[in-house]
Write a protein that binds this DNA or RNA. Sequence first.
DNA 1: CTGAAAGCGCTTACAG
DNA 2: CTGAAAGCGCTTACAG
Lengths: 350, 350
Amino acid sequence: MAAPEASTFLSMIAPMKRPTILDVARACGVAKSTVSVVLNQSPAADRVPEETRARVRQIADGLGYRASWRARVLAAKQTGMIGVLYTPPMPLIARGNYEGILSGINETLAARDFHLVLMPLGDNPDEWRQLLTDQRIDGAIVLSRLLPKLAEALISTGTPTALVNADTDLHLPKVLADEYDGCRQSMEHLFDLGHERIVFLLGQQPPHYSVQQRIAAYRDSMEAKGLKRHIKVLECDATQFASDFKQSSSRPTAVVCYTHYLAIKLLQAAWENGLRVPNDLSVTCFSNAYPVEDVVPPLTTVALATVQMGRSAAELVLEQIDTKGAALKRGVTLKTQLIVRKSTAAPAAM
Amino acid sequence: MAAPEASTFLSMIAPMKRPTILDVARACGVAKSTVSVVLNQSPAADRVPEETRARVRQIADGLGYRASWRARVLAAKQTGMIGVLYTPPMPLIARGNYEGILSGINETLAARDFHLVLMPLGDNPDEWRQLLTDQRIDGAIVLSRLLPKLAEALISTGTPTALVNADTDLHLPKVLADEYDGCRQSMEHLFDLGHERIVFLLGQQPPHYSVQQRIAAYRDSMEAKGLKRHIKVLECDATQFASDFKQSSSRPTAVVCYTHYLAIKLLQAAWENGLRVPNDLSVTCFSNAYPVEDVVPPLTTVALATVQMGRSAAELVLEQIDTKGAALKRGVTLKTQLIVRKSTAAPAAM
DNA sequence: CTGAAAGCGCTTACAG
DNA sequence: CTGAAAGCGCTTACAG
């Protein structure tokens, strides 16, 4: 036997069942439908006399009535939940840019009384369709990468969808950052400082929209500047880069890192190898998420409007829901902005 | 008019309604209940001949039947959703230690086919109770701080609950880290290196379980070592600390930072002020979350078993659900572990 | 302007 | 072993 405890105690003095809409209706002497209509402020409520409305509200309040969400969901054919679909593991999805994206989604959703449900995609693609067909979510937001099986399921179930940071030829609403221009801005900045030997540190990355865009801008910028001969996209890691750097005879003077994770690793590797940033090497990256500003030295970076990306994605799916899928499935591309900090400087005199 | 698009096209060739359980039952020539029982593998299914079970499964599959989650929720009186209740803004809750905690929660939940729903607590405490009374979630996990109004709502609604990193005298299951011992380990480490002038950098923090425990361990350790005269808990920020440090005549040789955020800021402030860590000052902190290991220099820190904390919390609420609240509302305290990196070293010779 | 009724699509005792 | 029925608690056309 457990010791007496608060919850037991309270359940003893307040053991009454939750009141249902029927209880409220009876107490008010009106029909269930009237209670429903009044409490939900449906359009039909306009035709209920203010006096009745007030009474219903008051009695419902007095009884501590709250509509059962479970029942409402069945009757109203909506759950008010938007699934955020992602490929596990989760940590990566809550970090860096995704932190802002999730915040933005959540903010917009909350304002409309929708909720965000995290839905990790299991290993078996055949189950993905079921996530959508069981009518649990009213809409879906897909982060980062749209796998073909998922795309098929999304489209064939007619789920209101928005893609974030995932490109596709499919006609689905999507939110992207103008990564090309962001990278172009970085290059411009480096050129202005006088850099010519600029390399792109990619690391090990699966192909992705962001990869393409950033690399394309890097290449195009170098070419336009007549530096085609110096174009170099490296797939090694930061540690490797730093140790190669020391031995190299033709050192780059600046490096554009594909992610801030890479840049931060590079800062550490540089420190370990006695290289000074930005004196020996300028470093730029993408994403202004924590801790880009807080490392040593603070990183020059391309900020994506992550919170706005999240908001836009949420708006795009809510729009689909509101219009029952009739809304234009438009795409949104948000501006990026270079933020100059202390990891970039003019190259040391040769 | 929008251009023809994939979803329109598909809805034209596959416009059939979702099959319901009744459709399946008819197609199989059995009762709805049989279908339900077989597909859910309820205990009652044992009494259905294997032959029938196979047929039901096959036909359901062929029809692409999937039970409506909306309907199931009403009938089964469970939603399979666990709310993670937190005080906005969200970013803080997805970062640092919470990243691991959320992962752990999600992992355990997913294994049991439960889902995590993020539930930001609005400004109006009176609405919190409604979050719980509308029967949307089967249980709640509260992060970091249990506000009194929420506690009251949780208890009076009998919601299966677990608290993470939030202390309270109330009889609710809770998961804590042994922060006292963690801090004690740090102190031991610093003493071993030869430090005596050790300060605790708290920064601006509202009172909290973690604050109490860490400071208590700091004080106790200093006293036990006969260093009571050097006890100092600072509430300034990292920048202030660094600039005060330079001017101080009796400089500390080591600082224990309340959070890794503070420690990282301090590393930067030290760099800006030309102080070397660990040469001029040893730094330790709490939390082994990103980017503690990746900064310069990598930080000595007390790692909390965050993923395990999340798992335990999820288990505690699932346990309450499984036993209909009869489970012991026990608390779990998880071990912490000091991880020594390069931000600590013996103090410079005086 | 209001109420009776159908319906949302399941699950679960219960009867046979 | 299987099915008919009640019930979960709402919302929403629809009739009056």
